[in-house]
Design a protein around this nucleic acid. Structure first.
Length: 504
RNA sequence: GACCCGGUAGCUCAGCAGGUAGAGCACCUGACUUUUAAUCAGGGGGCCGCGGGUUCGAAUCCCGCCCGGGUCACCA
């Protein structure tokens, strides 16, 4: 009747009780961790030969016990910390009989331990800490996944990421890389004089992208509000207000489907640069991406799902019109809708006659997978770019680009529309679509139009999907693998927890 | 939303000509002072995802549902 997990937990809870009776706090307050596993390795690995001992060097470290190899009157074990793993060696005659008994009886795989001792190298040459004293820093009451195979169950990996991080070193490393990427982005932009700002997450109207929003309620004014779907319109208000280089790194929320490249909550970088146009933004984007990749991975050549992607500048630049004409023999500016429809049908895509923009998007879908190396796709038709300025030389297209890598859109940028009258008209067009039932059409943002009426300088803007970028740099197949705590179905976990009497 | 694959011990997995459940790791007891998937001896542990059906008998066959993964569609 009683399952094994409960038996194990009960056993651990009994041990904790015994420890307390002996006057040992199984959850003490602090520990002087002088060195991380990596710092110890860095310092002593090069200077020690197999079998050598540095008895006068004293070090302390701490981490989670990942394995124990018990030899009776001595034992080897590994500690894992944020930087890696380090082996330790404990011996009855080095810590005393009483302390050694404590280790044997009360220390288990999964516990957090602090150790003090000196470094040496074992016969086989592994750097090891010879333990002279140790302290239990936290007793675990649940067992860890298997030490050899790790945790494989995707469901547990996503629902209990902390277990994944404990059991699978690659998982911890992946998230460390994610935050290094984000640090590099900040470093680059701060170095260029950009100022990191914040905009509201709770908004009265959504804008800056086409997506269905999450709706929430504000009690104090008794109104419905939305979670932002982009940071764009507020960042441009900063530009109106007098900021010239701003960026925001933050979560945006879109109430849409989940796929390997879509998450309802994801991280975006948006930046706006006054007096710049999309050419300037393109150059900045190239430089930013190369900087981030090089400083995160130490190279610009990245293996993604078995394909080498080279992030070194310059990126290829192709006009959307030329690319589609070359691949499909259809001109998205000159040819009539019927011709485009015919080409789509020939390629097995049967679409109802909708807008011209819809047909253009479908044509692009046919060819985008062929774009593997970082490529700027330029000058999208006005029909599919409601937020971008018309091109100064060809009013049928816009001053816009997308960065395509491995067939995926990583960035989107324009010379920003700053004509308030034009902007107002485009909002009106969006509202018509909305009234016709298009839930993703943009909402009228009168305050934003009012801001533009005060005058916004010519401005270039850029948006980057950070999660998708991280996927490339961590060779991750799905966006969930780069989001530490992804959205999961909250099936009820009516697991009753028994802490055994007065415990807890 | 459609189709395909999966759910068995804490973990990784086997078992599916229908006969009432196994291994390794982990855990407990014992031996062992340089191991590293340590080794050796012994032991405990299962609502076989949930519900229904067929059958003398179901982890195994059938139906429905839940959860997860994948492909496609939808969506940017």
């Amino acid at each position: 009747m009683i399952c094994l997990l409960e038996e194990m937990r009960k056993q651990r809870l009994e041990e904790i009780k015994s420890l307390r009776e002996m006057g040992i706090n199984p959850y003490p307050y602090r520990y002087d961790k002088e060195f991380s596993s990596a710092e110890i390795r860095e310092k002593y690995d090069p200077v020690l030969k197999a079998g050598e001992v540095l008895e006068n060097e004293k070090v302390s470290t701490a981490g989670r016990v990942m394995s124990i190899r018990d030899h009776g009157k001595s034992a080897f074990f590994h500690l894992k910390d944020q930087d890696g793993r380090i082996q330790a060696y404990i011996r009855k005659n080095s810590v005393g009989a009483e302390k050694y008994e404590l280790f044997k009886k009360y220390v288990n795989v999964g516990d957090i331990l602090g150790i003090k001792g000196f470094p040496f190298k074992s016969k086989t040459g592994e750097l090891t800490i010879f333990v002279e004293d140790f302290e239990i820093l936290s007793k675990a009451i649940r067992p860890l996944p298997e030490k050899w195979h790790g945790l494989k169950d995707k469901e547990v990996i996503y629902r209990q990421r902390y277990v994944d991080m404990i059991a699978n070193d690659e998982s911890l490393d992946k998230f460390k890389t994610r935050y290094k990427i984000i640090r590099m982005i900040r470093e680059f932009l701060n170095g260029k004089g950009f100022i990191e700002v914040e905009t509201p997450t709770l908004v009265y109207v959504t804008g800056g992208a086409e997506a269905r929003p999450f709706i929430t309620h504000l009690n104090v004014f008794d109104i419905d509000m939305y979670l932002r779907i982009a940071t764009e319109l507020y960042l441009k208000r900063y530009i109106v207000g007098g900021f010239e280089k701003v960026y925001e790194l933050g979560k945006v929320f879109r109430n849409e489907g989940i796929s390997y490249k879509h998450s309802p909550e994801f991280t975006s970088l948006e930046l706006y640069w006054a007096y710049a146009d999309y050419e300037d933004i393109m150059n900045l984007t190239e430089e930013l991406i190369e900087f981030v990749v090089r400083n995160t991975l130490g190279t610009t050549k990245v293996n993604y799902q078995g394909v080498e992607i080279d992030f070194s500048r310059p990126f290829r630049r192709v006009k959307m019109r030329d690319f589609i004409r070359e691949k499909l023999g259809v001109d998205i500016l000159e040819d009539p809708d019927e011709k485009m429809l015919e080409v789509l049908k020939k390629n097995g895509v049967d679409v109802p006659i909708k807008s011209r923009g819809h047909l253009i998007n479908k044509l692009w879908d046919l060819v985008e997978e062929g774009v593997v190396q970082p490529t700027f796709l330029l000058e999208h038709p006005v029909d599919i770019s409601p937020l971008a300025k018309r091109h100064r030389e060809d009013p049928r297209v816009t001053e816009r680009f997308e960065l395509i890598i491995y067939g995926r859109e990583i960035a989107n940028a324009f010379s920003e529309l700053n004509d308030p009258v034009d902007q107002y008209q485009r909002f009106l067009d969006q509202m018509k679509l909305r009234e016709a039932g298009d839930e993703e059409a943009q909402m009228m943002d009168r305050d934003f139009v009012r801001a533009l009426e005060y005058g916004m300088p010519p401005t270039g803007g850029l948006g980057i999907g950070i999660d998708r970028l991280v996927m490339f740099l961590t060779d991750s197949q799905t966006i969930r693998d780069v989001i530490a705590f992804p959205l999961v179905n909250p099936k009820s976990l009516d697991e009753e927890i028994d802490y055994g009497g007065e415990e807890g």
